[in-house]
Design a protein around this nucleic acid. Structure first.
Lengths: 127, 127
DNA sequence: ATTTTATTGCAACACTGTTGCATTATTTGA
DNA sequence: TCAAATAATGCAACAGTGTTGCAATAAAAT
């Protein structure tokens, strides 16, 4: 199951790398110049997550957001252990600051961290 | 919009209070003796959340889970600032330990904390 | 007992994300 | 360079979660 290079994948990855916010499928669709099928976008994103190029955040609106991984964070669980903030006004999701001291009780194993706080971001509050 | 007492609401609240895990709509339906309409359950749960009787967790499967609030946590945002763990084997969601030191950058306001970690719980790992 | 209106149940919908399958396009290797 | 193998795409259809509209029901208030 080796990967192939395609324009569509390139377009999505470039978009995610340029954007400072985590993007939902909806946001990605909106920003793409050439329209790409909804299903294809989801499949591309899932592949990126599998390959560790992108990380997946489930915000507290229950939707998936995707953000380009910082370099070398591929498959590094700890690197995904940071805070995500969703602004309920502008609906942007951003990754904030470094790792949090989230500790599980003995005997538990974490496979995925999903730390999502929602509220109003600085920009929206200043308006 | 004052509230009225009904058997259905009583049944759902009792269920949530007896259960040590946070429950999804699905789980609630499964445990109810008298069947209650899906829509009604959602409406009851949303009312409970509004009234601060129950808190809502969005796990990293994107689904809503509901847990009876500890006494006096009603509308107290800080009290909801704790870790939620979803076991991907037994699919149970539990509320773990005390508040976390989640700090937002200056200018941000948090309206909702949703800290969800998934993995394997102690019980499932011991099997 | 009667009125008021919160609650319920049904049908229908909106939305997110996935699966199946035929078609297209990238790789690979002769 | 061309042909075969197969990854990626697009369309249709589906599954699941959660919501809204509306008529029927039932709790509370008079």
């Amino acid at each position: 199951m080796s990967r192939r290079n395609t324009k569509t994948q390139e377009a999505v990855l470039t978009l995610l790398r340029e954007e400072q916010y985590a993007m939902s499928h909806e946001g990605i669709t909106a920003k793409l110049e050439e329209p790409i099928d909804r299903v294809t976008i989801y499949r591309i994103l899932n592949r990126f997550v599998e390959d560790g190029l992108v990380h997946r955040i489930v915000a507290d609106d229950g939707r998936q957001y995707f953000a380009s991984c910082a370099k070398n964070c591929a498959h590094d669980l700890a690197a995904h252990n940071h805070l995500h903030f969703r602004c309920t006004s502008c609906d942007r999701v951003e990754c904030l600051q470094g790792p949090l001291g989230v500790e599980l009780p003995a005997g538990y194993r974490a496979d995925n961290y999903n730390i999502a706080v929602s509220g109003s971001c600085k920009e929206c509050r200043e308006e």
